[in-house]
Design a protein around this nucleic acid. Structure first.
Lengths: 155, 155
DNA sequence: ATTGCTGCAAAACGTTTGCACCTAT
DNA sequence: ATAGGTGCAAACGTTTTGCAGCAAT
């Protein structure tokens, strides 16, 4: 299931940047857009490999970087030294709450945050590129946490 | 130059947690508190090594984790897959603006952020542990950027 | 024809681990 | 005495790179 609009955006981006238009790159685009939730580059590579794709690990890493550059994919970082990505389509702008007990990532929006990054950039005479706002927290009621028992929580 | 108060806090933390009180751990504490600005675990290890310390890399990594647990050191993540630390003493709570042109890290405080993480946790029924708010931006006036010319900015 | 992209494997990077020895309790 | 920490080197997982062949322009 391909996204025609995204395909066109990516094609234009590649052309304008004098990057070659190759089938592998569009394979990565399609896989990235189809992925539910957040994924590491290697997750995507393995998924594609399991789906019999012949695209190499290096190409997956390179192409994700291109997709970030043209805003089709957003780069995330949840403090565990793994670069994660998510499709920028379908969803509105949001931030993340990471549960330190179960690893769940809850997406939230808060109107108070919306203009803050731009305001702060103006105050400091910088031009905003992007921002990240991550909250690290714990399930208040462990009983309701679907993942809690699956991990070693003996600490 | 040792910080007596921090030493005492760390000693108490180690004792309460039934961790051994070793000279190596206090060496790491002192080096971490003396470090100006943000540092990676390996940066600290290399600095200590250059200063003729015999503390091993593993001990530096382990001890920094302990220092984070007792809030003497704060763990940071600026989106480049390197875990960074900074002393939690001397400075007030602050967030970070990272310049994508020159790599400078500007610390700022903004009162609108202060209560936001706790509010959002309450809304979602989580217990706040910590948060990170990073803004990625570019020097508006490249001429005034002290680092701009030292990097390859040909892009 | 040229230049950039690909796949592959190997290297690099920050970090963690296994193990034998040592040391604080 | 013994649980736990240390130094060292090797392993680890993620990401990047070098290179020969290939394909888009």
């Amino acid at each position: 299931m391909k996204n025609q609009k995204a395909t066109e955006i990516f094609r234009k981006f590649l052309k304008d940047g004098k990057n070659r238009i190759t089938p592998e790159r569009f394979e990565v685009l399609d896989a990235a857009l189809e992925y539910e939730g957040h994924f590491g580059a290697d997750d995507l590579f393995i998924l594609m490999k399991n789906n019999k794709s012949r695209v190499s690990r290096a190409t997956v890493y390179n192409t994700l970087e291109l997709l970030v550059q043209c805003d089709l994919v957003i780069k995330r970082n949840f403090g565990d030294n793994i670069t994660r990505y998510e499709s920028s389509l379908k969803k509105q702008v949001h931030d993340h709450l990471i549960c330190m007990d179960c690893g769940r990532i809850i997406e939230f929006t808060n109107s108070k945050i919306t203009n803050l990054p731009a305001e702060i950039c103006n105050e400091n005479n910088f031009k905003l590129e992007s921002y990240s706002f991550n909250i690290f927290a714990r399930c208040k009621n462990i009983k309701t946490c679907p993942y809690y028992l699956t991990k070693d929580n003996s600490e």
